Computed example of a mutant assay.
Amino acid sequence: MQVRRDVRLADLTTLAVGGRIDRLVEVETAVELVTAVREADEAGRPLLVLGGGSNVVAPDEGWPGDVVLVRARGIERFGNALTVQAGHDWDALVAYTVENRLAGVEALSGIPGSTGATPIQNVGAYGQEVAQTITAVRVWDRAEKAERTLTPAECGFAYRDSRLKRDPVRFVVLDVTVDLHPGDESRPVTYAELARTLGVEIGATAPLAAVREAVLALRRGKGMVWDPADPDSRSAGSFFTNPIVPSEQALEGCPSWPAGDGMVKLSAAWLVQHAGFGRGTREGRVGTSSRHSLALTTEDGATAAELLAFADRIVATVREKFGVTLEREPTAVRP
């Protein structure tokens, strides 16, 4: 394990905000990760576990204890199942599945961050989400001081949510097991924009490589593929989740999708844009991406306080204009 004291959270997050860290502990194996967590807990030091830093709004005041940076990488294959270390780059995993003719996560190409973070958020895009393939999540339970393997039911997956997200202090993800489908074809394409791009009907399949290429192109067009040279990718991806409301609250003109039990999912991007925060809206050093109104971006010198205040103005304006409350997707960390 490497320990450093010269790092800011801004250096470790895609939004590039956040102050100085007291102790940065970089780990390269699950054993080192557990050791680092136990040492922080036993010493009573505040603990923050980071992977790719792509879904975090880090605090301007920094972190007064240990930040454990998870760099544990590796994939083990058991038939059609893969067990993946928590620090393994997510998009590298998706590329591996396409190259090895395993379907199930191809539409999740281009999402930045680490594999260990995906079950926490129940990451999803273009009609797929990780809960559809995850069969086990191995964790360190800080309350029980023991390793556990959580089943999907125990993970409590919901739309961009899970038990791991609702109880962020207790569980530290060590590895994730996914069960995939062998073959050259994707899972059925259910997202209209992706189907149009591929030239297939909704519910049809397409070659795995073609789906990956199409998703990457769509995401790049929206500034949603991490690229240090692209200011529009200096974000946490979609900053708000699509709100789910009773069907009678559907809004005229707003795209919506059935969400079961008399509910519909509204387009958060439409709500943000029609509340007056279209692409390229800037307030000082923060604002919406020039290519996607749902992504909030930062400029050099921006602070978390500026970003969150701008996000709060969006939420308040959408609520006032449409009677719908947007929920933030990234986690705003507090010491």
Rank of each mutant, 00 (worst) to 15 (best):
R4Y: 04
L47S: 06
G79L: 02
H292S: 09
R8T: 14
V225K: 05
A58Y: 06
V189N: 04
V56L: 13
S162P: 03
N80Y: 00
A40S: 15
L271Y: 11
A302R: 00
M1N: 07
G74R: 07
K321G: 01
L296C: 06
Q128W: 10
T190F: 12
A36Q: 08
S54W: 02
A30N: 14
T151M: 01
T281R: 07
P246M: 04
P188W: 06
N242K: 03
A304P: 04
R71Y: 01
S238A: 04
E26S: 14
L271T: 09
A86T: 10
A209C: 04
E129L: 02
R23T: 11
I314C: 04
L15I: 12
A302F: 02
S233E: 01
V172D: 04
A158C: 07
E28I: 00
A304M: 03
I120M: 06
D230N: 11
R160Y: 02
A146L: 10
K222L: 06
A209E: 15
G253K: 01
D41W: 03
R170Y: 09
R20D: 04
E201L: 02
I111P: 11
A86C: 00
A210V: 15
E147D: 14
P112C: 09
E129W: 00
A214F: 12
P168I: 15
T118L: 05
H181R: 10
R4P: 14
E129P: 05
K145G: 12
D11K: 07
V189Q: 05
A332S: 14
L308A: 14
A136L: 06
I244S: 13
N100M: 09
V34Y: 12
P255L: 12
R313C: 00
D175G: 02
P152A: 03
S247F: 03
A214H: 09
R212Q: 15
V94F: 12
A217P: 11
T297D: 09
T118F: 08
S109D: 05
E42W: 11
T281Y: 15
V176N: 08
A125R: 08
V67Y: 04
A204M: 07
F277H: 07
T14F: 01
V169E: 14
Y126R: 03
F78A: 13
A304W: 08
A117D: 10
F310L: 06
R220V: 09
R291V: 10
V7Q: 08
V98R: 00
V215C: 05
A269C: 06
V200I: 13
D227T: 00
K321H: 04
I75M: 02
L307M: 13
L326G: 12
